[in-house]
Design a protein around this nucleic acid. Structure first.
Lengths: 345, 345
DNA sequence: CACCGGGGTGAGAGCGCTCTCACGAGCCCG
DNA sequence: CGGGCTCGTGAGAGCGCTCTCACCCCGGTG
């Protein structure tokens, strides 16, 4: 809690180096077109004075902030129940750092906050935004569209790819689900149930679709909606067992759900994987690896998703600045998933 | 990815409202000392134009940014293995938002990043910093001290409270550990082991101290160092069983460690809690609640810790600005913990 | 040898805001 | 009824930086 000392300005550096402000500015910003001896002198002065450019002054004229907002809709309790969020953030952070951009974190919590975020983005405090908006009825995308800030979404937004110019990064939820179910089929299972996630989220819908892709003409009673939580998994599993005691496999929408299902299966006296094989989704380590038995699941490279989101955004930002030809606007990316085989299936 | 429109300036609002820039500025910043009719006119103009102040221009003159950096040392894999980090962040975010401050997230990863963070903080881009630095040998605190930025630490910093002016928020790790061990004693256990956390972190040291507070003259062979991970818990538990097969209770440094211990105990044929009672720490829900049996553990109010850190920092910032009397510099806070009884002990 | 051109450098005008002052009303008091 | 007050308002000077432009000094050319 110390008082901040007065910091040297460009002017001061210029005086010390015996050059003009303009020259110092040039050196500080790359040094192109300045002759070597001068560059050296300026560098020395910068060093000696411990000069650090004033970002506010710079932004004022450049209209650039080298900062990106990351918006996370809080009601996503899921976001806090697993390391998903943290990993993604790490990927984003790495990429932003590599390009000298700052990360401004905006966590929202209810309607009022949405307005706040909208105002902030519209306020032009950041160059772009990375938004996690997984619910179908989320008002955030709307606000962002109005704020006219370059944006990349994490996860396919609810209103689908219809609106033009919408860029997102997502895992191949549908393909991953297909792989999971196919794996179960390959194991000789035929009565394969699915505990879906909360179906107001695209990831849940996509995983369900993937399941259906494989289980064409499957028994609809084998599908129950969960909510991505262990408790939801338990509830759904009980219902499934009541409905179809003959099921021999379960594909759960995520690992948390699977862990709940596992518990109920154990209670009911079923052996996993002997009687019922179980596959999860996410490969959320503390859960998947520690569960009993360890969970076969679908892994998505979460950190890479984050990194990619940032990369896409920055690329888009460059386009605005550089205008180097018609570098196509970045388009959405869907990352592949991989099946991780453990003991449960 | 849309182009940002040119935004109205103070000047424009002034023109529309038929007043001077100064008056608009006054209204925008609270409206004190401006007569009602004018306030109204200005408000209307602001509304109609959709005016949002340019933060860069404002910062340039006020030297305030209304932004706080949150620095998280990445090597803390622990930080990403549980919702700890996310919860703390949520608490911080809430508090900052309530005071119209932005949250700039700085994740570090190795030495280079430390320098980067040091430069950033020294650059005066933010008004203060909240730093999570849990390792004893962390160079970050040093850098921060040099950057002369008001700072509040999350968790007691390694070099202890000796340096004056250091403010931190921590859980009562020692007290919580005492409660845990006393609970085991109350259960009639006497051969109580402790699997410590990584002892280069103050939280681990404090929990160990708490254990020792109760187990005075305890068998030193009952203490093994872990590393806060399930794998570490397994390893430590094996060693403990080999050393002291007669142990009847385990206090683990955190829930993850406890979950590893639980698995080894099960393997070894011990029943929990009948043969060996187990207590964890953190009350990290997905682990503590889902483990088998559910874990008795020590809960800390993580979100509150975050909120408190932010509050302390903002208060310190105010002091610098307001100078309202000798409002004592904020001092460190240690939050109480509570024992949560479940099935494992 | 005068001229032109180009690259390196400096001067200066803002970017949008806050804040200090000076100023002009009103008001109270003598 | 005039002199001081206060309160409300406007004018204007920066905050520290970037960027355009003019200038100057070269070397190469006609």
């Amino acid at each position: 809690m110390t008082e901040t000392a007065p910091r040297p300005t460009l002017e001061a550096v210029a005086a010390r180096a015996g050059v003009s402000r303009a020259t110092v500015s040039r050196v500080v910003n790359g040094g192109d077109g300045v002759r070597e001896p001068l560059v050296e002198r300026v560098r020395k002065a910068v060093e000696e004075l411990g000069y650090v450019p004033n970002q506010a002054a710079r932004s004022l004229v450049t209209r650039r902030h080298d900062a990106v907002a990351v918006v996370v809709a809080e009601p996503e309790t899921r976001v806090f129940a697993d390391p998903f969020f943290a990993l993604q953030l790490r990927g984003i952070s790495k990429e932003l750092t590599a390009h000298d951009n700052q990360l401004v974190l905006l966590l929202t919590e209810g309607r009022d906050d949405h307005a706040r975020v909208g105002r902030y983005l519209a306020g032009g405090h950041v160059d772009g935004a990375l938004v996690f908006s997984l619910h179908l009825d989320d008002p955030l995308p709307e606000l962002i569209q109005r704020a006219a800030v370059p944006t990349v979404f994490g996860g396919r937004p609810g209103w689908s790819g219809d609106r033009q110019g919408v860029v997102y990064v997502d895992s191949d939820n549908r393909g991953g689900a297909r792989d999971a179910v196919r794996h179960l089929v390959g194991l000789g299972r035929s009565r394969i149930a699915h505990i879906a996630g909360a179906l107001d989220q695209t990831s849940a819908v996509d995983r369900l679709d993937g399941y259906r892709d494989v289980m064409v003409d499957g028994d609809p009673r084998l599908i129950v909606e969960g909510d991505f939580t262990p408790a939801g998994g338990e509830r759904a599993m009980r219902e499934l067992l009541a409905r179809c005691p003959d099921l021999d496999a379960v594909f759960a929408a995520n690992d948390l759900t699977a862990s709940g299902a596992l518990r109920v299966l154990r209670e009911s006296g079923r052996r996993v994987p002997d009687d019922v094989a179980v596959v999860g989704f996410d490969d959320m380590l503390p859960v998947a690896e520690q569960s009993d038995p360890p969970l076969t699941t679908v892994r998505q490279d979460i950190e890479e998703m984050g990194r990619l989101m940032a990369r896409l955004l920055l690329r888009g930002l460059d386009r605005h600045a550089g205008e180097q030809g018609i570098a196509a606007a970045p388009s959405s990316v869907v990352l592949p998933t991989t099946l991780v085989r453990r003991a449960s299936a």
